[in-house]
Design a protein around this nucleic acid. Structure first.
Lengths: 296, 296
DNA sequence: AGAAGCGGTGCAAAAAAAGCATCGCATCGT
DNA sequence: ACGATGCGATGCTTTTTTTGCACCGCTTCT
């Protein structure tokens, strides 16, 4: 798109942190890029970058501008997607920032289903923690965020909320496997594996134990649920995960037991978008599908 | 602004209805303009205009595009205004679509007060009926709308609402001038002058008389309140206006009496903006001032 | 002290846009 | 019926803008 070239270049400079690096990325010379920026700043009425010996950085005016630019670009993409829609060519691209739990089963299944109807639509799936996911929305680097317990900042517009009980997961050979029901305190009596700090499940478990005498005493911590699920197949330990992250087909040898919600509050899986933004057709449609899938 | 030139040209073509006329408006040749548009359509991916023997018209894709363009331009203006704000140069421009009643006194006073604090800010005041005012917001051709009883379409975001009783206005020599209170039926017993159909006061009076045996029988209709106010100084007749349209200082020889609200419902003066839009600093500030002034 | 990396600038080459003249086409008025 | 008019489109030349190249001055790091 020719007419937004200057904006794209500026965006690239912001990302690269220096005019020369950005020039290389965009396959033009630094001098040309430099001049375009200076010309733009002239027209714009004030400087946008702070020149420093090691490169450039946005000044406050530039911060305002870059937000505008990002908004413009994603809004134009939305318009083009809508136009493509009414031209009959259903194409598009959906980018999603999501929690790890959605990777093994839920999102692959949902995307495959969507692409069954609309093969022209492409996807980008990025694992993000809850605050980074929201930042991605603000950046316009993701269309949708699907995370547990987001920080819910002002820019986050909820599309859907689904409570998910925390589940204990252990091997079929584990002593708890024969118990009628499993409480958190039972799990803590056994060796247990926990997600690292910052993860929603860890947070919920911390809260659940904070007013009891029981303490979390993980034999292992990890930022990978894949690791933890595999670990409890090797040692008689307990790990935790949300139902949406537990594909039934891959649970051979494992037992899943939801913890009672009066003991451990459920995690809320929240689907959201950037507040006030009109999503491209493809993203809006996919969001609707997710919403329906999550309601079940 | 160089980089939005193409957008400006397209907008101009939409307004002019033909490439040649737009070219003249923008001081370039028709061939250059034509080529820019065709190039843009290439990049954009599909045609934007319907070519007709008498000129061009937007096709559905173009309708979507022009909305995007207008949004872009006004958002960029907002950013520039914010930047000017933090550069210390408080400048800006506020455009208002408003009812006639606000012209003689309220808006002049408000604008003068605002410009007392911010002499760099300029204003555009356009008289619009309630539906046109809302259309102006959608077009981004006005920042604010201040009208009675707007149609309240989906794009209208209310900032402030003020009830205004309908007032009867007549000369001090009029028989009603000595009455303790004035009811609508009293006014209808005398010759009366009404605003034309479509005006809020006319509508409210129609509603008030619809379930009675009394009928409106205006000796004169007008779309100018200025005319009506002056008319009742020449003949012993009654006219109607909202308090906000009646400057006390100019009412020598006239009596103003509010009609009881249980007989004639008050008109609601509504200040609004385009839904979801972030107003430029100057407009947002002025809206806040209006809001406070209207609360008294 | 020197190398490396940064933004900025003068100048010539290259590319893009504009202007001009002209075409084909549909409509309108006489 | 038919020419006049006004529309968008297009080939060609000229003008303007942008780019690339070489180089400067500056700061930082080794």
């Amino acid at each position: 798109m020719r007419h937004l070239q200057t904006f794209k270049l500026i965006e690239s400079v912001v990302r690269a942190g220096s005019i020369r690096r950005a020039a290389e990325d965009m396959n033009i010379t630094a001098s040309a890029l430099n001049r375009r920026i200076r010309n733009f700043e002239d027209e714009f009425g004030c400087e946008v970058f702070e020149r420093m010996p090691k490169g450039v950085r946005l000044n406050p005016a530039g911060e305002l501008l870059i937000q505008h630019i990002r908004g413009q670009m994603s809004d134009l993409a939305r318009v083009q997607s809508q136009v493509a829609d009414l031209t009959g060519v259903r194409r598009g691209h959906v980018s999603i920032a999501c929690s790890q739990a959605l990777l093994p089963w839920f999102l692959p299944a949902q995307i495959a289903e969507y692409r069954g109807d609309h093969p022209g639509v492409t996807f980008a799936v990025n694992v993000r923690d809850r605050s980074q996911a929201e930042r991605d929305l603000s950046n316009h680097s993701s269309d949708l965020a699907l995370v547990f317990e987001p920080i819910l900042m002002v820019d986050f517009e909820l599309i859907s909320t689904t409570p998910q009980p925390v589940c204990a997961v252990f091997s079929t050979a584990h002593p708890l496997a024969t118990a009628a029901s499993v409480r958190l305190r039972d799990c803590l009596d056994h060796p247990h594996v926990l997600p690292a700090n910052g993860y929603a499940i860890r947070h919920l478990l911390e809260v659940a134990t904070s007013d009891t005498s029981r303490r979390l005493a993980p034999i292992a911590e990890s930022d990978s649920f894949e690791f933890m699920l595999h670990y409890v197949q090797h040692e008689q330990a307990v790990c935790f995960q949300f139902p949406v992250g537990l594909p039934e087909s891959e649970l051979a040898g494992l037992v899943v037991r939801p913890l009672p919600v009066d003991e451990v509050s459920p995690g809320y899986l929240r689907l959201g978008q950037l507040k006030g933004r009109t999503l491209p057709v493809a993203a809006a449609l996919f969001a609707r599908q997710l919403h329906q899938a999550l309601e079940l």
